Simulated scan of single mutants.
Amino acid sequence: MPFFVTKYGGSALWALMIYFIVSSLRPCWTPYRSAAASGLIAGTAELFKLYHIPELDMFRQSLLGALLLGRVFSVTDFIAYAFGIMLGVSGDRKFRLASFLRL
């Protein structure tokens, strides 16, 4: 796969996962409130990459650390996060509308 797809697609999927976790833990929240909370979590995780101490850097070198925290700060990841969260909101709204119409 092209680098663009793997780099930013993975970031978008990570943000989408965060959105679905938030919306599953707080089902009474509107999709937009879940999106705001997810954006805050994803943005904080990205900014956390700028914080360096030896123990944290060692953890980031492991597979689990790389998956949970990431390794390298990238401003463009914020765009990928927004795209992934927007996909989640769109799907969530369609799902809620379909559920409402079935009642």
Results as ranks from 00 to 15, higher is better:
Leu63Glu: 09
Asp92Ala: 01
Gly9Phe: 04
Gly9Gln: 06
Ile53Tyr: 04
Arg102Asn: 10
Arg26Pro: 00
Ser38Asn: 07
Thr6Trp: 14
Lys94Gln: 13
Tyr81Leu: 06
Asp92Cys: 07
Leu87Ile: 10
Ile85Thr: 03
Gly88Val: 02
Phe73Cys: 08
Lys7Pro: 04
Gly88Asp: 10
Ala35Glu: 08
Tyr19Leu: 13
Gly43Cys: 06
Ala36Val: 12
Trp14Asn: 04
Ala12Arg: 06
Tyr81Asn: 12
Arg60Glu: 01
Leu56Lys: 02
Phe78Ile: 07
Ser23Phe: 06
Trp14Ile: 00
His52Thr: 09
Pro31Asp: 10
Leu101Ile: 10
Ser74Gln: 13
Lys7Val: 15
Val5Met: 11
Lys49Ile: 03
Ser38Trp: 10
Glu46Pro: 06
Pro54Tyr: 03
His52Gly: 03
Met1Gln: 07
Ser99Pro: 00
Leu40Asp: 03
Ala82Cys: 09
Arg26Phe: 15
Ala35Asp: 07
Ile79Pro: 08
Lys49Val: 05
Leu13Thr: 04
Pro27Met: 06
Arg33Gln: 12
Cys28Ile: 10
Ser11Cys: 12
Leu68Ile: 13
Thr44Lys: 04
Arg60Thr: 02
Val75Arg: 01
Thr6His: 14
Gly39Glu: 04
Glu46Cys: 03
Ala35Ser: 10
Arg102His: 08
Ser90Gln: 08
Tyr51Cys: 13
Val22Arg: 08
Ala42Gly: 03
Met58Cys: 07
Ala66Asp: 13
Ser62Thr: 15
Leu67Phe: 11
Lys94His: 13
Tyr8Phe: 14
His52Cys: 04
Gly91His: 01
Cys28Glu: 08
Pro54Ala: 01
Met17Leu: 15
Ser74Lys: 01
Ser11Lys: 00
Ile41Asp: 06
Thr30Gly: 13
Arg93Trp: 09
Ser38Phe: 12
Arg102Ala: 13
Met86Gln: 09
Phe73Tyr: 15
Thr30Lys: 10
Lys7His: 11
Ser34Val: 09
Leu56Asn: 04
Leu50Cys: 11
Arg33Tyr: 04
Leu69Phe: 09
Glu46His: 05
Gly43Pro: 11
Arg60Ile: 05
Ile85Ser: 02
Leu69Val: 01
Ser38Ile: 08
Leu47Glu: 02
Met17Phe: 15
Ala66Arg: 14
Arg96Trp: 11
Leu101Tyr: 13
Trp29Leu: 13
Phe4Thr: 08
Ile41Trp: 00
Met1Ile: 01
Ala45Leu: 15
Ile53Asn: 14
Leu25Lys: 00
Arg96Leu: 14
Ile79Trp: 13
Tyr8Leu: 01
Ser99Leu: 14
Thr76Val: 11
Ser38Pro: 02
Ile21Lys: 07
Met86Leu: 14
Asp57Cys: 05
Ser74Asp: 15
Phe78His: 05
Lys94Cys: 12
Tyr32Ser: 05
Ser23Trp: 09
Pro2Lys: 06
Phe78Arg: 01
Phe48Ser: 14
Ile21Glu: 12
Ser62Lys: 01
Ser24Pro: 00
Ile79Glu: 02
Ala37Leu: 15
Phe59Ala: 12
Thr76Met: 10
Ala36Arg: 06
Leu64Cys: 05
Phe20Val: 09
Phe20Asp: 00
Leu50Glu: 02
Arg102Ile: 05
Met86Lys: 09
Gly88Pro: 05
Gln61Val: 00
Gly91Lys: 03
Ser34Trp: 04
Thr30Gln: 11
Ile18Leu: 12
Met58Asn: 08
Trp29Thr: 06
Ala45Pro: 02
Gly88Ser: 04
Tyr51Glu: 04
Val89Gly: 00
Met17Trp: 15
Met58Lys: 05
